[in-house]
């Protein structure tokens, strides 16, 4: 009898209404974060679609401006400028990937293989530091090294080479941008690989040593295979963010009118032309393009990462 009662009560306690009542305080607390999502995340998405279909004028505002359907998109896909910023965005992202992907893998294997634990710890601590500097600081450093009277030019002068306009040229923009990016992230990017390396079964290394395998065989047959999943995973994630990985914040600091031809990307264009010159309609259309293609790329890359590496972000 008592058991029955408990059972009935137990069932009753599981109704949706009861559970909602149980968590009422949590719902109440979550109002603010969810209000945030609606106001600062969903509203802009809505605005993005509205603006993208409008010929925005200051007088008309968001709601009063003329509705022009997909004209903004038509204008974009026909404009040379959009092709240029799209090309630059993908090019800079790919260059970052090509130059910045392999070095951390090599470095993490080296750090992992290092015999002296003390030297390894100290090196790691120092190599990670640049990651924590803001891009402003990185630009400050780049400027003092590369300016006309800077360290590099003074050094060149010493060798009898004339000073070069490193910061005001099309030619040196990409190497300096990508180089300083790699400088900032190289050490930090090893962390994920090092975490994977420490998970490799140490008995394998022991067995390899007894079998007389040298460092090269060891790396080839044990170390690298041990981190292949993580390598594939990060490669996929990098490819998935190809539209967002150009680094707007860094480029905004490093670029100037002398190199817009190679340095202007989607993000910097949105800031300078979209926001600065109030091309809100066209700018929103660019955002729709960027966010939608970005979404598809991330979904695909996550799927591929799950398939090939057994690792995904969800």
């Amino acid at each position: 009898m008592g058991e029955m009662k408990a059972l009935v009560q137990g069932k009753k306690k599981n109704t949706v209404l009861h559970r909602m009542k149980k968590y009422r305080i949590l719902y109440l607390l979550a109002i603010i974060p969810f209000a945030y999502l609606i106001v600062f995340r969903y509203w802009p998405i809505f605005l993005q679609f509205v603006l993208a279909t409008k010929n925005y004028t200051i007088k008309g505002g968001i709601w009063g401006s003329e509705f022009i359907g997909l004209d903004n998109f038509a204008q974009l896909f026909h404009s040379r400028e959009f092709k240029k910023i799209l090309f630059n965005t993908v090019r800079i992202s790919l260059l970052r990937l090509v130059c910045g992907f392999v070095p951390p893998i090599i470095l993490s294997v080296m750090l992992f293989d290092m015999n002296s634990a003390v030297f390894r710890k100290i090196s790691q601590s120092i190599l990670y530091i640049p990651h924590f500097f803001s891009w402003v600081i990185v630009y400050a450093i780049a400027q003092v090294l590369f300016q006309n009277t800077g360290y590099i030019n003074s050094f060149l002068n010493l060798l009898g080479i004339e000073s070069k306009q490193f910061l005001m040229s099309e030619r040196y923009f990409l190497p300096i941008l990508i180089g300083s990016g790699v400088w900032k992230s190289l050490g930090w990017s090893t962390i994920l690989y090092l975490a994977a390396l420490t998970n490799i079964n140490t008995e394998l290394f022991e067995a390899a040593r007894l079998d007389g395998a040298g460092p090269i065989q060891r790396i080839r047959y044990i170390t690298l295979p041990g981190i292949v999943p993580i390598i594939v995973f990060s490669l996929m994630m990098n490819l998935g963010s190809i539209l967002s990985a150009a680094g707007t914040e860094q480029i905004l600091l490093f670029y100037n009118p002398t190199n817009y031809e190679v340095s202007d990307v989607i993000g910097t264009w949105l800031y300078r032309q979209g926001l600065g010159k109030m091309k809100y309609g066209l700018g929103a259309a660019v955002s729709v393009f960027e966010s939608s293609v970005g979404l598809v790329l991330v979904l695909i890359s996550n799927k591929l990462a799950n398939k090939f590496a057994g690792l995904g972000i969800w």
Binding site: R41, Q48, L270, A284, S287
Partner: peptide, 9 residues
């Protein structure tokens, strides 16, 4: 996965 972008925000 999806954000409104610089101008709408």
């Amino acid at each position: 996965l999806y954000n409104g972008g610089m101008i709408p925000t």
